[in-house]
């Protein structure tokens, strides 16, 4: 058997990196991200707004009232998608944090810092609409059951992340501390999801599951799914726009610093 000599230079990029990994890393380049997101943003924002508006109009005006809850059930079309997005947003925050800790992509840092205010906003909307719904149905603005408490903890985790990321003089330290905090807080997500199954809560259990028939009428399900899709796109559009702004802000700061240094050398 002839031993073949490998002619490739030894400093070639490691071949062990999987194709999928390389494919994803391509998008971590800020310049490519700016071009791509700039082209995508209108196509996400416009359908997002249109779907949200359609779902809400359908749900608030045309869907039937509940036989038991009456018109109060219409709060669902605002409340349930906000609750889904609150959890999904935290999952995205944790994903960005893991990417920033493992690969140190600056873009993941910026995205994580921009996801948490948007997620906190959706969580606040979920809590406020839930409170408005609870008053006519349960007779109380707030009850301390497991679902409500765990979502409140999620809200505090978001606020803690916002405060922590911005509390350091060097931004990189803040991103790193925030990433660790976000990953620690992930334990709360399964608690939120399963709180209605593990404990006997006043909050109802899930009506819609991944496998298995939904326990709600289709005439209510369609507007709900429509507004959920719309909310998701709006969430993505907000995060994209904020991340773009953060990238540009960072570039401007770098340019200003470079100019100041240049002037210093000249003067």
């Amino acid at each position: 058997m002839v031993r073949r000599v490998d002619a490739r230079p030894t400093i070639a990029p490691p071949r062990t990196l999987s194709r999928a990994g390389r494919g994803l890393h391509r998008f971590a380049n800020p310049g490519r991200f700016l071009r791509l997101s700039g082209a995508l943003l209108p196509w996400i924002a416009a359908p997002g707004l249109a779907l949200t508006a359609a779902g809400l109009v359908w749900g608030l005006f045309f869907a039937p009232a509940d036989w038991q809850q009456g018109d109060a059930v219409r709060i669902m079309y605002v409340h349930v998608p906000a609750a889904w997005l609150a959890s999904a947003g935290y999952l995205a925050l944790a994903g960005c944090s893991a990417a920033s800790l493992v690969w140190r992509h600056p873009l993941a840092d910026l995205a994580a810092a921009e996801i948490s205010p948007v997620g906190a906003g959706f969580t606040a909307m979920c809590l406020i609409t839930g409170s408005l719904w609870g008053k006519p149905m349960w007779g109380a603005w707030w009850v301390w059951d497991a679902r409500l408490t765990s979502v409140l903890v999620l809200f505090f985790l978001y606020l803690g992340h916002i405060a922590l990321v911005r509390a350091f003089d060097e931004p990189e330290r803040g991103y790193r501390a925030g990433a660790i905090l976000a990953l620690v807080g992930v334990v709360n997500l399964p608690i939120i999801k399963f709180s209605v199954d593990w404990w006997n809560t006043l909050h109802q259990p899930d009506s819609i599951t991944l496998f298995g028939a939904p326990t709600m009428s289709l005439v209510m399900l369609w507007p709900l799914l429509l507004s959920a899709l719309g909310y998701t796109l709006v969430f993505a559009a907000l995060v994209l726009a904020r991340t773009r702004a953060a990238v540009m802000e960072r570039r401007i700061r770098a340019l200003l610093t470079a100019r100041a240094r240049h002037l210093e050398i000249l003067g």
């Binding site: 985790l157 803690g160 922590l164 509390a167 350091f168 003089d169 330290r173 803040g174 905090l181």
Partner: peptide, 27 residues
């Protein structure tokens, strides 16, 4: 300890620490 390590070097770390640790201590 995890909270104290995370806020190490932050401005107003002493104020931030309870905000981070107390929600996690709820269970």
């Amino acid at each position: 300890t995890a909270g104290a390590a995370i806020v190490l070097g932050a401005r107003r770390g002493g104020v931030l620490l309870p905000l981070l640790v107390l929600p996690l201590a709820v269970p």
